[in-house]
Simulated assay, not measured.
Amino acid sequence: MIKKKKKIIIAIIVFVIVFICICIIMSYLHRDDEFLKGANGNAMTYINDVHPNKYKSVDEALLDVDEKVKSEKQLCQTEYNGVVHVYMQGKFQNKEENEGNTSYVNCFDFMKDNEGYTYCGGRVLNIDFVESLAEDSYTWEETFVSDLSQSMLHTFKASVEKKYKAIPAWGVTDYSDISNVTVDDQKIDEVHELDVDGKTYYLWIINDLKTRNKASEVRIESVDKTTQNR
């Protein structure tokens, strides 16, 4: 009985030590990350190596990666440095999945070569999810920078920067003049309009984010020439 108790105590001690080590490692990996608040909710899944499956087409790859694309609307498909990004718009069908706003944009990334396409990972952005759950409201600048910061996270950059030879950035806003916004003097490459329950939003895309400033420090200039020094 005493030996059994000792084993349990040792197991608990080992678990605590491992947990502390994991926390220290995660803190180190994310030491430079900023988690900025905005109206949208973001989640991403990128893998350190490309998916082993090879696909003949993007459509074949999409269906294998996520069957939900059958019920989603394709907003656009872009290609930069041999990486294809497919942006899909959808709604969570089950309310229990998402108690806030149920509209989202899903981006799937595929690397292209002579043999076909391989899946790299993706990111889903839940439009106005945070704002719909909280009493707080956010300006378009706060939401823009929050979405922008997702492309500056250590885990994202570590997974894609070497493979893509670029840092893609994107987000969703209700700011109608988003096409004229610059980030540290860099222009937005593409803007696509989307309808969410009768309200107009805009998907903005930067193919390769050049700034090395932190998201909180980037300089945003809008069409009316007002600047935001963050």
Results as ranks from 00 to 15, higher is better:
Val69Gly: 00
Lys95Ser: 14
Met44Trp: 07
Thr143Gln: 07
Val86Tyr: 00
Asp49His: 13
His30Met: 08
Val65Ile: 14
Ser146Phe: 08
Gln186Lys: 07
Glu190Leu: 10
Asp59Arg: 01
Asn207Cys: 12
Val218Ile: 11
Asn48Phe: 10
His192Ala: 11
Tyr46Cys: 03
Ala169Trp: 04
Val191Phe: 09
Asn207Gln: 13
Val18Asp: 01
Asp177Val: 12
Phe92Ile: 00
Asn40Ile: 01
Ile127Val: 14
Leu36Ser: 09
Asp189Val: 09
Lys5Asp: 05
Ile206His: 03
Thr173Phe: 05
Glu141Tyr: 10
Asn101Phe: 01
Cys23Pro: 00
Leu36His: 11
Glu131Gly: 07
Thr102Asp: 01
Val145Ser: 07
Tyr80Asp: 05
Asn94Ser: 05
Tyr164Thr: 03
His85Lys: 13
Ile12Arg: 05
Ile8Glu: 11
Leu133Val: 05
Glu67Arg: 00
Ser57Ile: 06
Asn213Tyr: 07
Phe144Cys: 06
Met111Glu: 10
Lys187Ala: 15
Phe35Arg: 05
Asp224Thr: 08
Ser151Asn: 01
His85Gln: 13
Cys23Gly: 12
Lys163Arg: 13
Ala158Val: 07
Ser137Gln: 14
Ile47Ala: 12
Trp140Ser: 12
Glu142Asp: 04
Met26Arg: 15
Asp49Gln: 15
Ala169Gly: 04
Lys112Val: 05
Lys162Thr: 13
Pro168Tyr: 12
Ile2Glu: 11
Thr139Val: 09
Asn106Ile: 00
Thr155Met: 10
Ser159Gln: 12
Asp197Ser: 10
His192Leu: 10
Val16Cys: 14
Tyr202Gly: 03
Gln77Val: 08
Lys5Ile: 12
Ile178His: 04
Asp136Thr: 15
Cys120Gly: 13
Asp113Tyr: 14
Phe35Trp: 14
Phe156Cys: 02
Val191Leu: 09
Ser103Arg: 03
Asn207Asp: 13
Asn48Gln: 09
Lys95Asn: 14
Val181Gln: 03
Glu190Ile: 08
Val183Asn: 08
Gly41Val: 05
Trp204Ala: 02
Val130Cys: 09
Glu135Phe: 08
Ile2Lys: 14
Val172Ala: 07
